[in-house]
Each structure stands twice: as C-alpha cells, then as structure tokens.
Amino acid sequence: MAKIIVLGAGVMGSAFAQLLADTGNQVFLVGTHLDQDIIDSVRADGTHPKLKVKLPENVRAFSYTQLEDIVDQHVRLIVFGVNSAGVDWAVARIGPLLKPQVPILMLTKGLAVQGHSLKILPQAVKEGLTQYGLSGIPLAAVGGPCIAGELAARRQSSVVIACPDTALLEWLLNLVDAPYYHARGSTDLMGVEVCAALKNFYTLAVGYASGQLEQRGKAPNGALMHNLAAGLFTQALAEIHYFVKILGGQIDSVFGLAGAGDLYVTCQAGRNGRMGKLLGTGLLYREAKSKHMPDDTIEGAELALVIGRTLKQLIDKGAIAQKAVPLTESIVEAVCDNQPLLIPWDRFYSKSKT
C-alpha cells in the first residue's frame, strides 16, 4: 500500500483518487481553496457532491492548509489534479514540503509560455520546483480519453501514461492496474502532453458544428451536420500533428489515445464543446462566456488566452508556419480578439490548379 497525495479535489482528481484507492493505496485527497465544500462533504459521509459517488474509505479528505501535516517521508507519489490555472499555486504549496525524488503525476492539461516559446506543463512544474531547491524531480502525465464521471462510475476507460523514466513508468502502470482502467505506457511525454493540452482548444471548433445545426436547423430531408463536424475534427488532428512535430513529440501519439482518442471523447460532451456550440450560433466569446457559462472554466479558451499572443508572434516570426495552422488562428481570433468564429475552408486543403 502506497501513500499518495492527490492535490485538487475536483472531478478528475477525485475520480483518480478513487481509482488509486481501488488498487489498494492510502490516498490523501487535498482540496484547494476552491474545494472546501467538496472536502466538507467527503469528510461528512464520503460523498463527492459533483461526481455523485461515495468515495472509498481509504480516500481521506484534507484542506490544503493541512498539507504540512501529511507530506512526510512515507509519501510515494504526488498527483496534480488542479486545473491549468492552478499549477503555479500547486507548485507553491507543494514545493517547500516535497521530499527529493518523490515523483509527480500530472492529470492537469495545458501549455505554458516562457519568453517566446511554448512549454508543456511538466516542464513548467519542473522549473518551478527549482525555486525550492528541487532538481531532477521525476514527472509523468496521464493522457487519453477519460471522462471523470465515467471513471468515477468505474466504466471501462483506456488511457496512456507518459514518462521518460521506464522504471517509474512500469511502477505507475502497476499502481493503477484496476479491472476497469486500461493504461498503456509511453515515453513520449512531450507528444502526449501537447495532444492533451490542444484537444480542449480544438473542441471549441468541432463544437461549432452543433451551433450551426441549432442555428440553421435540419435540412428538409432531415440531414444534420456530421460532415461539418468530421471535417473540423480532421483539421484539428492535422494541426495537433503539426504542433507535436515542431515541439519534438512523437507522431504516433497524435493518432493514439492521447490525440485522436482524447479529442474524440472531449468532443462528445463537456464545457469546451458547449462553448463551441455557442460560438457556432454566432455569439462572440465574451458574450457567450458572461451570459451562458459565467462560472465554468473553459479549458480550451483559457489555453487560447494563455498562448494566443505568443502564437501570433511565432507565426509573424516564421517559427510557426501560418499555412499549417488556419484553424488555430481562427480559434485564437474568436477567443482572444472576440471575433466571430469563422471556418477558413479555403485554407484547409491544397487544391490542384488546372
């Protein structure tokens, strides 16, 4: 039985805590300053109010103010289950307490900007920890199609765990070996994390098709807009492929669970797809956010706001080929510049001249 701390008591962090408990571990679920209602509920009767499940008895709930009391020499793993905006906060809380060589497993998805370059979140975490005298902390990440509610219901789920350290990777795969959780291993941390970050971003565009359908309605013959959604999905994969390639990841990750698999499941339901649908009806981003989703974190839009300016600069400098990322530019313009989301079909496919 390993002692594991999961930092972040939201739906994914808590669902993953349940998984770790099911495989026989002692799990300390630590809520952020935003999670106190969840922590109080789990302490009272074990019920997670958002997942609507009762967590196992070997999941114990704590406030972040109690971290100093539970981080000790027996901790074998730290899991980051905060959202992307909370990563710096998590590093600041765990950095002064973390013991050297205790690995961190990232559930958090996103990209960070450093200077004029893009970094995956494990890189940002590793660099942040150096402020606390911690160098060489092993980092790994979970990617792939895994909706928190389904994981909490113990539905069959397939994921990929990425870690350059093959010994640690093997240990992590054994750690999460539950009958309903099927984890594949990969050493491609860069590729898996780029895919995991960008799937939310591009789901905004795929969701656009649902908004167009709502606005225009079914055709007289009953036809919907599956063709439109599929075309946008394919373009999204093409642009993920491009970013994985230029950032140094492995192309296989794009067409596996981390890329195509995760993009598919993210497009089926969730906040990013709902925002994309609103944009597809013709609403501008700021109006859609303030009127329809004021209390929701839209991960894809948050990523656009974080990296949008840098992407424009890299395109202007020629470091990113503009012709390779037309859908990316449209999403950035829609979110960062509050412009209508327009689909640049004429830039998606090269057409032979006759």
Rank of each mutant, 00 (worst) to 15 (best):
S158Y: 10
E150L: 02
I246M: 09
A21I: 08
A61R: 00
F348P: 14
P344R: 02
A183I: 04
T310L: 10
L20P: 13
V53A: 07
L7N: 03
I104W: 03
A219L: 13
T266H: 06
M293T: 06
L105S: 09
M190H: 00
F233G: 07
N221T: 12
D37Y: 03
D72N: 09
G128P: 13
G149V: 06
V71D: 03
T328P: 15
V42F: 11
S330H: 05
G115I: 05
L172P: 14
A140I: 01
V244H: 01
D35C: 06
N174F: 00
L257G: 06
L247P: 11
L139T: 14
P96Y: 02
G46Y: 01
V159R: 00
T266I: 07
D337H: 10
D316W: 00
F243I: 07
V53M: 08
H292I: 04
F62M: 00
E239K: 01
P164V: 01
A9S: 15
C195L: 07
G191E: 05
K323E: 15
A152W: 03
Y180W: 09
V159N: 00
A236P: 14
G149P: 03
V53T: 11
T108N: 08
V325K: 01
G133D: 09
G261P: 13
A183K: 01
K317N: 13
G249P: 05
P340Y: 05
V142P: 12
T266C: 10
G273N: 10
V160I: 14
F201D: 00
Y64G: 10
V332K: 03
R347T: 09
I298H: 04
Q212L: 11
E302A: 12
L232F: 04
D262W: 03
A301V: 05
